[in-house]
C-alpha cells in the first residue's frame, strides 16, 4: 500500500487503516520497545501505549511526513515518557538509586531482562546498553537504531529528520564516545 493510498484509507475507514498498521509495523515497534526498555513486560506495555496513541491521532496524520517517520516519532516520544515515569517511580520507591546522572556509565536499566540477549552475553549486554544510555540523546538514538535495531542510514535519516552525512558523523562520534566510556568503566571496575 502506498502512502497516498494509506492516507485515503485512514480518512475513510480508521479501523481498517489501524489494522493495516498493526500488520505492517507492530513487529518493528515491538523490537524498538524491547531495545529501549530491555524488559518484555515493559515493552508490551509501551507497545500498547504507542498503538493507542497511533489510533487516537490517526485523524491528524496528513501525509506531511513519511508514515514510518510519524510512527517512529510517536514511539520515540512515548518511550521517553515511559522511561521518565518509570524513573520517577523508581526514585519514589527505593533509595538504591543507580542512575545518578554523573559522568561515565550509570545503570539506567531498571530490570534487565532482554529476551534477545543470550545468557552468556547478559552481563556484557547490560554494560553496553548502560553505556549507550549514557551517550548524548541523539548519539544514543542513532547508535541503537543502526547497530542494535539494524536500520539503514537512509531509514535513520528519515526517522531522525537529519541528512545521511549527519547520521554518519553522529554514529562516528557515538562510537568514539562509547569506547571512551567503556575504557573508563574498565579502569574503574575491571583493572
Amino acid at each position: 500500500m502506498t502512502e497516498e493510498e494509506f492516507l485515503v484509507l485512514a480518512q475513510r475507514d480508521k479501523d481498517t487503516a489501524f489494522s493495516y498498521l498493526t500488520i505492517a509495523y507492530a513487529q518493528k515497534i515491538y523490537g524498538s520497545c524491547i531495545q529501549l526498555l530491555r524488559n518484555t513486560e515493559d515493552a508490551e506495555d509501551l507497545l500498547q501505549e504507542v498503538f493507542v496513541a497511533i489510533y487516537l491521532s490517526l485523524d491528524s496524520f496528513n501525509g506531511n511526513s513519511k508514515l514510518s517517520t510519524w510512527i517512529y516519532a510517536i514511539t520515540h516520544n512515548k518511550g521517553k515518557e515511559f522511561l521518565r515515569n518509570k524513573t520517577r517511580i523508581k526514585r519514589q520507591g527505593t533509595l538504591t538509586i543507580l542512575d545518578d546522572h554523573s559522568e561515565g556509565i550509570s545503570s539506567h536499566t531498571i530490570n534487565f531482562n532482554h529476551p534477545g540477549v543470550e545468557l552468556e552475553d547478559k552481563e556484557r549486554a547490560q554494560i553496553l546498553f548502560d553505556a549507550i544510555d549514557s551517550l548524548a540523546e541523539n548519539q544514543s538514538r542513532a547508535f541503537r537504531l543502526a547497530k542494535i535495531e539494524g536500520y539503514s542510514y537512509t531509514e535513520i535519516s528519515e526517522m531522525m529528520e537529519m541528512s545521511v552525512s549527519s547520521i554518519e558523523s553522529l554514529l562516528f562520534r557515538a562510537n568514539k564516545r562509547l569506547r571512551e566510556l567503556l575504557g573508563e568503566y574498565y579502569l574503574k571496575n575491571k583493572s
Binding site: 529476551p115 534477545g116 552475553d121 556484557r124
Partner: peptide, 12 residues
C-alpha cells in the same frame, strides 16, 4: 568484546 555484543542482540 562488549561492542561485539551489539551484533548478537536480536529482536524477538
Amino acid at each position: 568484546d562488549i561492542m561485539d555484543v551489539s551484533e548478537r542482540v536480536t529482536s524477538p
